[in-house]
């Protein structure tokens, strides 16, 4: 089998991991239903081979990568990231992958490239959630190019040292630890570099609730709940107190400079 890389001690060495069972069975992946258990329960029919990822748009070398080629593009490593869901819960997850910048550099973005769009696969016969019209499928997410190039932004192939389960976005996804979880597109089949800001799924559904940036920010409440605290999944049982949420989910040192001069209550 594939080796998913050694733990990089620079990331999250002092964190207590969320149990693997919780990480892989408590997920938002609406292609399989809106229930948190739906992705693990109904993901079994998804076709994962062959898997190709098309990378095109404002790039000099548009390419379609086989998953195997993508896995060989850079050295895999394990990083422990905090994951903060916009719904007010969080996990600590060991992801296996490499920085997305390695892939983006390989396709050589043009001078016009300002944004990166992630497009999730659609498999109607394997994804019962596609029948609902909650989202105008496929699921679209996106980043500004400098966010996508940030060394924290990870292209992820595994979790807990094993290939990603369907529920976590098999076979390839991104992890952007300073943003709310929904920004991290799953089961990616297409990455498009664009000049204009992409129209992402949740911004389309409820622009007053979900912004394009979606940086973790305890000072900007969601219209229906405060974002000041979070519940850490799998720690301490029924009486564990909520934890204070950190600005940029605690990754401000690496990413705050991306937003200098921006009013983050406006660009939420």
């Amino acid at each position: 089998g594939i080796s998913y890389g050694q733990r990089n001690p620079e990331f999250g060495a002092d964190e207590k991991l969320t149990p693997e069972e919780d990480v892989t069975t408590y997920n938002n992946f609406y292609e399989f239903g809106t229930g948190k258990e739906d992705p693990a329960r109904y993901g079994g029919d998804m076709r994962l081979q062959p898997w190709k990822v098309k990378v095109d748009g404002e790039v000099l070398r548009p390419q379609e990568f086989d998953l195997d080629d993508l896995l060989k593009l850079a050295a895999l490593e394990e990083r422990v990231y905090r994951m903060r869901c916009v719904e007010g819960w969080s996990m600590v997850i060991p992801w296996n992958g490499y920085p997305l910048s390695a892939l983006l550099k390989a396709v050589e973005p043009t001078g016009n490239a300002k944004y990166v769009e992630f497009i999730t696969d659609m498999q109607p016969d394997a994804m019962p959630g596609l029948r609902s019209r909650i989202i105008d499928w496929p699921y679209l997410e996106g980043l500004r190019l400098d966010e996508a190039m940030n060394p924290l932004t990870l292209l992820v192939f595994g979790v807990y040292g094993k290939a990603l389960p369907v529920a976590n976005g098999a076979p390839v996804r991104v992890a952007i630890p300073w943003k709310y979880g929904f920004k991290s597109g799953k089961s990616i089949v297409h990455i498009r570099l664009t000049e204009k800001q992409p129209e992402t799924s949740w911004v389309r559904i409820a622009p007053h609730e979900y912004g394009f940036y979606a940086n973790v920010n305890p000072d900007v409440p969601h219209p229906r709940w405060s974002q000041a605290t979070e519940r850490r999944i799998g720690s301490g049982g029924l009486f564990a107190p909520r934890l204070p949420t950190q600005m940029f989910n605690g990754y401000g040192e690496q990413v705050a400079s991306l937003y200098s001069g921006m009013d983050l209550s406006r660009y939420y």
């Binding site: 069972e21 919780d22 069975t25 408590y26 948190k36 258990e37 819960w89 519940r231 999944i233 799998g234 049982g237 029924l238």
Partner: peptide, 13 residues
Amino acid sequence: LGLTGGLTANPPE
């Protein structure tokens, strides 16, 4: 459900 671990990963919710 509590005794059999069936309260999901997020029992309070």
